[in-house]
Design a protein around this nucleic acid. Sequence first.
RNA 1: GGGGGCGUAGCGAAGCUGGUUUAUCGCGCUGGCCUGUCAAGCCGGAGAUCACGGGUUCGAGCCCCGCCGCUCCCGCCA
Length: 594
Amino acid sequence: MQYQKRTVTCGDLGAADVGKNVVLNGWVHRKRNHGGISFVNLRDRYGITQVVIDADSPPELQSAATELKPEYCVAVQGIVRARPDTMVNPDMATGALEVQAEDITILSRCVPLPFQIEDKTNANEDLRLTYRYLDLRSFSMQKKIRLRHETAFAVREYLVGQGFYEIETPTFIRSTPEGARDYLVPSRLYPGKFYALPQSPQLYKQLLMVSGFDKYFQLARCYRDEDARGDRQPEFTQIDIEMSFVRRDDILTMVEGLMGYVFKKVLNVELPAQFVRIPYDEAMERFGSDKPDLRFGMEMQDFSPYVADCGFQAFKDALAAGGRVKAIVVSGKADYSRKQIEELESQAKIYKAKGMAWMKVNAQGALEGGVSKYFPDAALVTRGLGAKPGDLILIVADAKAKIANTALGGVRSKLGKELGLLDPAVFKFAWIVDFPLFEFNEDENRWEAAHHMFTMPQEQYLDTLESDPGSVKGDLYDLVMNGYEIASGSIRIHDSELQQRIFRIVGMTDDEAQKKFGFLLEAFKYGPPPHGGIAPGFDRLVMLMAGETSIKEVIAFPKNTFAMSPMDDCPNEVDEKQLKEIHIKIVPKEEPKA
RNA sequence: GGGGGCGUAGCGAAGCUGGUUUAUCGCGCUGGCCUGUCAAGCCGGAGAUCACGGGUUCGAGCCCCGCCGCUCCCGCCA
């Protein structure tokens, strides 16, 4: 096809170009016809330029212009001219100029659109994903994809500058049933055997440390076959990092430097040189979450000092059972209706709380409503909690500390959202440190690794690993920001004996360990260096930088909630022939028994 | 596995507690007019088995049951 290739883009014409003969290639964003004169807003990745078809243009040009419809792809040749003063559009980057068309060539046509291409699209997500290539035409989406690119570039720039090598690791790997469910890839050459897609390059990056690549990173695609969320996709990207001869603080400092660089470079936002560090236990008690949103206060407080003398049995029972009674003060919200409070209570119940108590501080400073009658000494309570007249006090009690904390923490998060306390332009980072190394799995009646089995226990617990696993803290750290976990890492075990002790504690026999991780244990016989690492979630990071609440907004072609792609209808059935080659037989799903 | 929300023209929404109905509005689409707009304007038009299947009722977009789809959340995510 003969057509004129662009000499400029729709975003870069300036005053100096007036009088020039230019060619633009782009899409018809909008067209306005006034009978004689007509205007076309031509759009490409770089911007929008107004093309004018004058009333006295030749008939061929006029008819070409008449034919144009939204999203036609065209080549326009014409002369750049300044707009008359009164017709300058100050809202447009190129609003002082326009191109007087001399020739318009339609490169391709466009059928009526399923939804309009505009920044604040009103189409629902399913439709946007079905026509993702159209959705991505909007400037708002182009901007997010660009932000992602720039962030990736800045990450590489910084880490390479710090002496890191980017090294690829395999995406067909050995399946290890620990952790998330694996995506499996059947093997054609080995009937009945499978590769797994990596949940993360964890073991490979540790092996790279054994190899002596003491600073490694990779923008690694990871795969986990678990249910999706706003901040979770079945495939996602992490900035995988591992370093040798480091202690915890070396990693934290390095990531602080990385984040500082990226935010400055990409968003021109200055981050603090260091991020606050909060021990896990403290985060749970203060915020009811291991990924607290620090953009607002409303911290949870211990309500137990007021319980002993009160007549409210539920609170006493919770404490007697070793649980918690926790409160938050909602400033100025004594005017909340019963219905509003019930909605908050239902939020608490999502996290298995049995209920949520409340009371209000009236204008005189007295307690009223809810459970207030059980607390005759209002001043004691309000002074202790720092509650002022007009405040609302919410209380959750439970025999299990975790339930009381997470439930009220959930209420705190909901209130943060509801009260507009979450400014997307504010970025509050924090390190959560001193995580427990083990968690007790009640269903299986055994201890399991809270993070993963290669995490170093903190030194002071080495003697009590076996006798008291529950109290062991690991050399573990999460980076959190605005209520999201955006990185997780640890110092690793590089000692085979210690590693075997851990395996035994989580109930893995030496044989099993050998079978599953023998190659790692073997490698660790050959002078492994002390090492540790971390893996920031790249999609979540970009999501927050973009001020979004779903990572789908910053992934070009994401999956929907059910791990499907509505655009190409994936996953899909495959031919019998393909199945035969990989030795797979489909067993039909059993009908539920009546 | 469980819970909340949604489903009405191509898109987004309204439609009160079942009853003037030919299901309303905005955008888009389409025909016409219009020489400076930029979310152009004005006049006209087409376009909907109210997700789907049952049921209750004299009468269902609205109530009930089932089912499908999307979305958010709990579980899950070492």
